[in-house]
């Protein structure tokens, strides 16, 4: 199933120029200075572009409201922390924060569990219904959500879930799981099946093989999908604005929208709240990204 086997066909004739070739897992010292500059230069430019608008949001959050949209473009104007004080003190921000954490954490945990089992089944077993199922997963992503909101609301209402956090968790899962299952299937595909077979010969059942052998090897993949599920739930607005009706049950992203009504939007509070929202997501990534580096070690060390 994997294409890696094909790499045996590497053209042996290609002659590298002596010292220039560096091992990918090699230390940084072997990179020539020119290459280093190019590499870091590119990454610095990319990072600047990435954080540029965020810096703008951060700077805006320190301005009084009237100075955010203005003819004279200034980076800093009458800096103040009043916006943060208002957001933290006068609104239900902390409650929304708690709600978002609950929704995002459950979406992440439940999403990973289901998509990992599903992805594994799709990757390893050629069961009847496998290909149609993968197609069905795709089709569920093809019908625009904007059009589905009203019928989904009716279903949620029939289940008695309107104005509850589980309604959001379930709705978020319908976005996250099909994608994560597909992703994980892709990652599982690149883990050699010989490992499963070895485990199976050792007497592991399919669940045990999955749990004890494959899952630990797929840590980087799990980290990616975990992060994806978390952020999907963290930033989701469409379902939240349809299903949630009480201020104390808002999620952060939806709560933030309350600051910017169509007329007389309070940009200063939106930006301050956005900064407060970005920080925890950044911290989650900081921890998740460690798993991105510690994937498969050489050879199939047994899990």
């Amino acid at each position: 199933m994997t294409q890696i086997a094909g790499t045996g066909t590497l053209p042996a004739a290609a002659v590298p120029r002596g010292a220039r070739h560096s091992r990918p897992r090699d230390s940084r010292s072997s990179r020539s200075p020119a290459k280093s500059i190019l590499l870091h230069g590119t990454l610095i430019v990319a990072s600047l572009i990435a954080i540029g608008p965020i810096v703008w949001v951060l700077l805006s959050s320190l301005k009084p409201g009237y100075a955010i949209q203005s003819s004279d473009l200034t980076l800093v104007k009458d800096p103040t922390l009043a916006n943060y004080r208002y957001v933290l003190g006068e609104t239900s921000f902390l409650r929304w924060f708690g709600n978002s954490v609950v929704v995002a954490a459950f979406t992440m945990a439940v999403g990973i569990f289901f998509s990992a089992t599903t992805g594994y089944a799709l990757s390893r077993f050629n069961f009847p219904g496998r290909r149609p199922l993968m197609m069905v997963f795709l089709v569920t992503q093809m019908f625009p959500v904007a059009i589905l909101i009203v019928p989904i609301y009716t279903i949620m209402a029939n289940l008695g879930l309107i104005n509850t956090l589980p309604s959001l968790i379930i709705a978020n899962l319908t976005i996250a799981v099909p994608f994560c299952a597909w992703m994980l299937k892709g990652y599982f595909d690149s883990i050699p099946t010989s490992l499963d077979e070895a485990a199976s010969i050792d007497g592991c059942g399919p669940f045990a093989t999955f749990w004890r052998v494959v899952l630990p090897l797929a840590r980087p993949a799990i980290a990616v999908t975990a992060f994806y599920s978390f952020l999907t739930a963290w930033g989701e607005v469409a379902y939240a604005s349809a299903f949630i009706q009480e201020d104390r049950k808002f999620t952060l992203a939806y709560g933030l929208q309350q600051f910017v009504p169509q007329f007389n939007p309070q940009w200063e509070y939106l930006t301050a709240a956005a900064v407060l929202v970005t920080v925890p997501a950044g911290i989650v990534f900081f921890f998740a990204q460690r798993h991105l580096v510690s994937g498969l070690t050489a050879g199939g060390t047994k899990g």
Partner: peptide, 26 residues
Amino acid sequence: INYQSVPFGEAQNKFKTAAQAKTGAP
């Protein structure tokens, strides 16, 4: 009185969706 502030821009559709499902409208 349970006072709930709803952004003007979304209140119209939100009310209709809830009223139609006969659940959750104010």
